[in-house]
Every structure is written in structure tokens, then in C-alpha cells.
């Protein structure tokens, strides 16, 4: 009986491992092909001969092609994603604090408005939001990419639910000691919200980092493109140069994977909490 159990467990580990291998295979394929000799790119399941040629070509340009601003695009992505994520976190915490912990007339109305807006199909807003950004003079700028994504209804929703579970007695005690609402947020609420903050941060950052549609329509000049948009634009024209495209894909994907793995443990714990 015990032996049977042990054996079936081993089989389960093997199945789990093979499944995982299948799921991460596209990543392995991408990384290996970015280092593969150009004669082997997309020609072999697992390349055997490796070179840095694709990266050199990507960043330095070939004999017949001008190099594209890949490094600049990487930093554009970093600026836009960080700026947007930080704003979404700050607005999320502040609005959620009001909705969960402050008594004021109209609070229920705001709660319902946010829920309604969350389930409202956002596609209808695409064209007029573009026009608003244009009228505000933010077309082709960082602000044009950041501002329409400066508040996340999902972040407000998550934080509101989390803050509601924090007992009011903590806050009332602090208020009696003369603490202001800002101090309560920074000294009491946020230190208790570490796990959810990591979950919210990671989801917002990942989503912003891989955004295509908005960043594509609101930016025109080469120097303002995010990495994802630049990669998308090169999709067709670089068709004959898949090696460098894989290299660019690695540059886009690896940083976000490292960021995620860095916080993976806290992410797992936070998710367990939010899924309860």
C-alpha cells in the first residue's frame, strides 16, 4: 500500500514536470533561437550552434539596415510602465481608503459607480480617449501613454476589499492619538497590506509592460515607441531576420520574468489570500 502510494506520487511528479516543460517550451525556444546560428533559426527544434550575431545585429544594425532604437525603446517601456504603475497604486490606495474607511455622504454611490464602470465594456472609450489626449496636447508623449492608465478600477476594488477587513479599532485608536488620515495610511494601513500590494503591483506592471493597442495609437515618433510597440512594428519588415526578432523578444520578456521571480514567493502568498 505504501509502496503503491510512493510510486503513484513519483508518476505525478513526472507528469507535473513534463507539463511544466511543455508550458515553458515556447520561452526556451525563444531564448535558444535568439542565440542560434542564423542558419538554424526556426530550422531546428533545439539549435546546436550558437552565436551572439542576432544581438549584435539588433543593436548595431546590419550592413544594409539602420539599427532601430531598441535600447531607447526599452527605457521608454520602463518609464511608461513604472510611471503608470506607481500612479495606479497611489490612486488605488487613496481612493480605496476613502471607500473602505471614511464615512461620507455619497460613498455608496461611488462604490456602485466603480463597480458599474468595471463591468462596462471599455472598447467604446478608445476613439474619444485618443481625441482627449490629442486635445490635451499629449499625443506622442510619455504623459499620453501614462495618464489614461493612471487609475486602475481593479486596483481600487482589490484594495477596498482588503482595507474593509482591517478592524476600525486600529484606526480609531490612531485618530485619538491625533494621527491624520495620511499618517494612518502610511503607518497602519500600508504596513498591513504588503502581500496584496505585491500582487497588485505585479499584475499592474505586467499588464502595462505588455500593452500594445493604446501605446501604438498614441505614439508616432520612433524615439517614443515602447519596446512592445517597436517589436510589433518590426514583426513584418524583420520577417527575413527572425534571429534578431528573437533577441528583441528576449530583451522584452526576460526583465519581467526576473521581476516576477524576485517577488514570486510573496506573490504566491498574496494570491492565496486574495483567492480565499
Amino acid at each position: 500500500m505504501v509502496g503503491h502510494k510512493k510510486k503513484s506520487l513519483t508518476i505525478r511528479y513526472i507528469i507535473a514536470f513534463l507539463l511544466l516543460l511543455l508550458m515553458v517550451f515556447p520561452y526556451l525556444y525563444m531564448v535558444l533561437n535568439s542565440f542560434a546560428d542564423w542558419s538554424q533559426v526556426d530550422r531546428k527544434l533545439i539549435p546546436t550552434s550558437f552565436t551572439l550575431h542576432s544581438y549584435e545585429w539588433l543593436l548595431g544594425g546590419g550592413q544594409s539596415a539602420e539599427p532601430r532604437p531598441w535600447i531607447r525603446a526599452f527605457f521608454n517601456s520602463l518609464i511608461v510602465s513604472s510611471g503608470s504603475t506607481i500612479l495606479m497604486m497611489v490612486t488605488g490606495v487613496v481612493v480605496a481608503y476613502a471607500l473602505a474607511k471614511l464615512q461620507f455622504r455619497g460613498r455608496n454611490f461611488l462604490n456602485n459607480a466603480i463597480l458599474f464602470q468595471m463591468f462596462f465594456p471599455a472598447i467604446i472609450l478608445l476613439v474619444p480617449t485618443f481625441l482627449i489626449i490629442q486635445r490635451l496636447g499629449m499625443y506622442d508623449s510619455y504623459w499620453g501613454m501614462i495618464l489614461p492608465k493612471a487609475l486602475s478600477l481593479w486596483a481600487v476594488f482589490m484594495y477596498t476589499n482588503f482595507f474593509r477587513a482591517i478592524p476600525d479599532t486600529f484606526i480609531e485608536a490612531a485618530k485619538l492619538d491625533g494621527a491624520s488620515d495620511w499618517q494612518i495610511i502610511f503607518r497602519i494601513i500600508l504596513p498591513m497590506s504588503k502581500s496584496i500590494t505585491i500582487v497588485v503591483f505585479l499584475f499592474l506592471f505586467m499588464e502595462r509592460w505588455t500593452e500594445l493597442l493604446w501605446d501604438m495609437i498614441v505614439v508616432k515618433s520612433d524615439n517614443m515607441l515602447t519596446l512592445n510597440v517597436l517589436l510589433s512594428q518590426m514583426f513584418g519588415p524583420y520577417g527575413g531576420y527572425p534571429g534578431p526578432m528573437y533577441a528583441a523578444s528576449v530583451i522584452l520578456t526576460v526583465p519581467i520574468i526576473i521581476l516576477f521571480l524576485f517577488f514570486a514567493k510573496q506573490f504566491k502568498e498574496g494570491m492565496q489570500f486574495t483567492l480565499k
Binding site: M23, Y27, Y29, N33, M206, T210, L231, S249
Partner: peptide, 24 residues
């Protein structure tokens, strides 16, 4: 560890996964 591994594809940009599939 397994769950974190399985979550990794969620981090992929649709542009990148499209490109990989097209090449593959």
C-alpha cells in the same frame, strides 16, 4: 514552485508569443 512555473506564460507579451508561434 510548480505553480509559479506554470504562471510564467502569463508574463508573455502577445507580440512575443505571436512571433514565436509564427516562427515555430
Amino acid at each position: 514552485l510548480f505553480l509559479i512555473g506554470f504562471f510564467l506564460p502569463y508574463l508573455a507579451s502577445g507580440v512575443v508569443s505571436s512571433f514565436i508561434v509564427k516562427g515555430f
